[in-house]
């Protein structure tokens, strides 16, 4: 099934030309009621998206006494960065009070290798499926795409058993393998569609010149794959950084990623709730993917749309 245009960004439409229809009626005022309505709707919608995060930022800069006064929307009277420092270094999960920073480093340790390995695997898959389809390759691909739609819960327990039988359950290599597995369907699809658009003559010419599987891959295909690799990196970094379920199940207590640590810090029931510290911790956890989002801009949308397109 092919799905419509995925280039989500195009220049605004040309103004409708008046071919054949002579302008009539009074000349429209510069700002009509309709325009005001449009902007009013958009601004209200924007407020819906912005207010929760505004509350978080403002609250994270207040001290607890000020928060207890309950003036949620007021800017901080005496801004303090102490909650941020506490969130990073001292926030408690149970009896450990090391803050979020171990979680941050764990997330880095999980994300970097997972992204690299999954993209290497997927690019080779896509290349082999497009140019060297062996018997049964497309059936395998079909099964892989099927995997993209399967609820995780059906696969998690067999994976737990499989990984613990080779001693990798609750370990760093274990969670990296899991992320590689679950990234593979979408990424393979992405790379296959990309390579399928490359003229086959290019491949044939290289074959005639005597280049083999790996040579064509490394010298011809890989250098051409920069744009799709950028999309894949954005998709994977944000996806793996934001993951919670696999982290809590497969990483093991000492490797828990930032999202799991955050949830533990915030949703622990013991002690007084330090809302400012919790919100600072939440912003810190969201910071990495948000940074990628604002830097990558339009590539980000392209990645999401491409990820949703079925082959």
């Amino acid at each position: 099934m092919t799905v419509g245009p995925i280039t989500a960004i195009q220049p605004p439409r040309e103004a409708p030309d008046q071919a054949g229809v002579a302008p009539f009626g009074p000349k429209p005022r510069r700002i009509s009621a309709g325009r005001i309505g449009i902007y009013a709707f958009l601004v209200v919608a924007a407020l819906f998206f912005l207010i929760p995060v505004y509350i978080m930022i403002v609250t994270s800069l207040k001290g607890m006494p000020e928060i207890r006064l309950g003036h949620l929307f007021n800017p901080p009277g005496e801004p303090t960065f102490q909650p941020w420092a506490d969130a990073w270094l001292h926030a408690c999960t149970g009896r450990d009070c090391n803050g979020l920073s171990p979680g941050f480093y764990n997330s880095v340790k999980i994300t970097l290798p997972s992204v690299i390995i999954s993209i290497i695997c997927a690019s080779i898959n896509g290349y082999a499926l497009t140019f060297w389809p062996y018997k049964g390759a497309n059936l395998l691909f079909g099964l892989l795409v099927f995997g993209a739609f399967v609820p995780y819960q059906v696969v998690i327990y067999p994976l737990i058993i499989g990984l613990s039988s080779v001693g990798l359950f609750a370990s760093l290599p274990g969670i990296i393998i899991v992320h590689t597995i679950f990234g593979m369907p979408i990424l393979t699809l992405l790379f296959r569609n990309f390579y399928a658009a490359i003229p086959v003559e290019l491949f044939k010419a290289a074959r005639v010149d005597g280049a083999g599987f790996w040579r064509i891959f490394f010298y011809i295909m890989l250098p051409m794959s920069v744009p799709i690799t950028v999309v894949a990196v954005i998709l994977q970094v944000t996806g793996i950084w934001n993951d919670f379920l696999f982290g809590i199940v497969f990483a093991g207590r000492s490797n828990w990623p930032m999202t799991v640590q955050l949830n533990n810090i915030v949703n622990t029931t013991t002690g007084v709730r330090e809302y400012n510290v919790n919100m600072a911790a939440t912003i810190l956890t969201a910071a990495v993917p948000l940074l990628i989002y604002f830097i990558s801009g339009r590539w980000f949308v392209r990645g999401i749309a491409a990820g949703a397109v079925k082959g």
């Binding site: 080779i124 082999a128 062996y134 395998l140 892989l144 499989g162 599987f213 891959f217």
Partner: peptide
């Protein structure tokens, strides 16, 4: 091509 796609074979058949 088969060697290169061993990870895919493992994931498609082994996991899914």
């Amino acid at each position: 091509a088969v060697i290169g796609t061993i990870p895919m074979i493992l994931v498609a058949l082994g996991v899914f």
